[in-house]
Design a protein around this nucleic acid. Structure first.
Lengths: 190, 190
DNA sequence: TCATATGCTTACTTATCAGTAAGTAAGCAA
DNA sequence: TTGCTTACTTACTGATAAGTAAGCATATGA
């Protein structure tokens, strides 16, 4: 049991997610995916007629993933600090995978993305900003967090630290990311 | 007077700089540059045989630009706050140019860069980290800045705020960047 | 004035890209 | 068993990528 169904379409999607974060939108091709799955290029076009369709689906998986994380965090009654740690943890794993976060990936390729995808990018970003903002707000009200800016601005500060932090970590090493990670929390609870 | 020499090689370099920040390494081609200068593709290969050579030269212009900024800031006896503002200003202009910073551009494309260029990327990043760190250190010693982390870590926090801030600004608008910019300074001098 | 170097253009190659058209094997549904 | 669908493969297309080789005009300098 626990066998991977190895459904082709979801395998394509999963590989595309990884390639997006490792190489970026303009640096991976259908051939890369086909090679890994040992299928033909055209098989991918069967599931995703255009590359824009594939990217749109990738974005949608991230949107629902973050929506799920939101509900999950709301259900489990974690304190705001633990919630933030869960969010930070998602970035921490990236540094071990030679990857950057999806938001950073699409943001730096933004001018080259198909128009149909740009809206989904904005949707994902607003979703994540909202989540972080809400957690910060909660923490402030409970007296766990202390910060002078509006929660949204502090959310932007933290998100930019993490997004560019993983980009930096690929070059200068994981230690820099760990230091950033620690400083984010220390700033909030001091 | 003040006529642009319109030297082809430096025009190529200048256009490549802009395309790198607007589109990224994998999304611009020699054809894009040739079109803008109304010359042929092969003319660019005459000056830069391989795309890696062009990118290497782009990186070197940024390295010497930041070295010059460093000397300039050291010569003019500005206070640390003004020095930091000058650095931040370099990012602020990017938001009006549909561009991200060169460091963010090469960082997110890092896995796809030619090996010969990766070293120069690291060199540029270390140079900028060092500059910001030094300014923060000065400010702390003079009592202008107040922050608990080691100066290098605070430099990383500020740089990541700015690098990802301009990436974000392309999507969610300049206002978010302005808020980040303000928060960076407020955090330091409060 | 002849030779050589510079800065291109013309004309190409090879490789890869996204995408398509046609065909097929296997399965399911009536 | 017939007809239709799913999930592909084979075999392309046209466009574009980086890169090259050879030629040619202009300027420079001996």
């Amino acid at each position: 049991m626990n066998e991977k169904p190895a459904d082709t379409k979801s395998s394509i999607l999963s590989i595309a997610r990884n390639l997006m974060r490792q190489l970026g939108y303009n640096a991976f091709s259908y051939a890369d995916i086909a090679r890994k799955l040992d299928i033909k290029n055209a098989a991918i076009h069967y599931h995703y007629p255009a590359k824009a369709d594939l990217l749109a689906d990738v974005m949608e998986t991230y949107i629902s993933e973050y929506q799920q994380l939101g509900k999950q965090l709301a259900a489990a009654n974690l304190d705001p600090c633990q919630k933030l740690q869960q969010y930070i943890a998602k970035y921490s794993v990236l540094t071990s995978q030679d990857s950057i976060c999806i938001i950073g990936s699409v943001a730096s390729d933004y001018n080259t993305l198909p128009e149909s995808v740009k809206a989904k990018v904005a949707q994902l970003i607003n979703l994540v900003i909202g989540m972080v903002e809400k957690t910060l707000q909660e923490g402030k009200e409970e007296g766990v967090f202390r910060f002078p800016e509006p929660p949204r601005v502090r959310a932007l500060l933290i998100m930019t630290n993490l997004a560019a932090g993983v980009q930096l970590a690929r070059i200068s090493g994981k230690a820099d990311f760990v230091a950033i990670e620690k400083a984010i929390v220390d700033q909030l609870i001091k």
